[in-house]
Design a protein around this nucleic acid. Sequence first.
DNA 1: GGATGTGAATCCGTTCACAGCT
DNA 2: AGCTGTGAACGGATTCACATCC
Lengths: 209, 209
Amino acid sequence: MTAVNKIPDIVIGRLPVYLRALSQLVVEGKTVTSSHELGQQLGISSAQIRKDLSHFGEFGKQGTGYQITHLYAQLQQILQIDREWAVAVVGIGDLGRALARYGGFSDRGFRVVAAFDSDPAKIGTDLDGLTIQSSTLIAEVVRAKQIRIAMIAVPAMHAQSVSDELVRAGVRALLNYAPITLNVPSYVHVQYIDPVAHLQHMTYYLDMS
Amino acid sequence: MTAVNKIPDIVIGRLPVYLRALSQLVVEGKTVTSSHELGQQLGISSAQIRKDLSHFGEFGKQGTGYQITHLYAQLQQILQIDREWAVAVVGIGDLGRALARYGGFSDRGFRVVAAFDSDPAKIGTDLDGLTIQSSTLIAEVVRAKQIRIAMIAVPAMHAQSVSDELVRAGVRALLNYAPITLNVPSYVHVQYIDPVAHLQHMTYYLDMS
DNA sequence: GGATGTGAATCCGTTCACAGCT
DNA sequence: AGCTGTGAACGGATTCACATCC
């Protein structure tokens, strides 16, 4: 269809999953795949994969399937991760440290370029070549480095005010690890990660024994 | 409706979110709330909240709203988190350490009771009173402690085999942080957390500038 | 008056099934 | 023959709107 109209958000959310699956297939030495194979790997119907991709263009060959490298590149472009995004981490507790040091960002479109904390004992400390900076510098650094994406790993109590400050400084996408719903302007995107919520979701189905 | 029939999984997934919102309201000193107030806080329609809750019973009073403590307790019961679930963490890198030490589990129904790693340098090390154990002991410990839930924080390469072993030992719910789709029997529940996928989801909407 | 609980209506996403290309 | 791309059919989830009750 190649329509650039209004693509459902739920479709966008599956594209990163497709990217992951394609990476895995590359590791397995494959160069070509099909909607059926991808679907099998992900537990998704092949029709859904074809329909999802059809929102953006025609990436396959009938009778053959998809060239993995080609499809991968296309999806990267669609998601705008055919470049490297600068990311800030706020709150360098155990979780923030893990995020700041995580090696899995670099080859998937992101680089942590700033780390903030309010604890004087941590400020100035080195973190794999990154220096932890005072939270009071958030506005300044975000502006200077043109940071558009931030990960919030501070206690729930402070998450909203940190969010406010980041947004004021120009951040437009937030990955929030604090277990609260953030209040942000409509032009800011937020995604939530709450491991406990995931666990609670699953316990519903567990039979105690 | 109070029907115990087949409740949509998507509804179950929202219950933890409602719990979070209720907690927040308690912090704000409220004792009663309404579907409207909850919806406002979460960015969800009030009708959806009422419909969701109606699957499980009638928890509100017409004209008044919901008694927060009562609704909270009911949701806890529905999700089976009116008890404490023992959880294992496998892979004590930065992320696994953060999970094992995270203080936010205890008051929401979970307790980390075992931590595994395959690195001899880490085995035997203390982690806030928890001793890191060899991954070779997974089966034994999971069985002994009747663990039904595990969090996987090992490199993608090893996630599938760790998953297999956990399932064989009796684990029935997995929270997987490795960026791969796990292959598990149908009676095992899996939830995925992939921060990069969330970031990639958001970059779609960012206009570069 | 005010807020719930719920059938009915609507909207949206998934699946079906097949024409069309290789 | 094999697999894509897609309109049509289907099913499920959300919203509407109102009767009901405090």
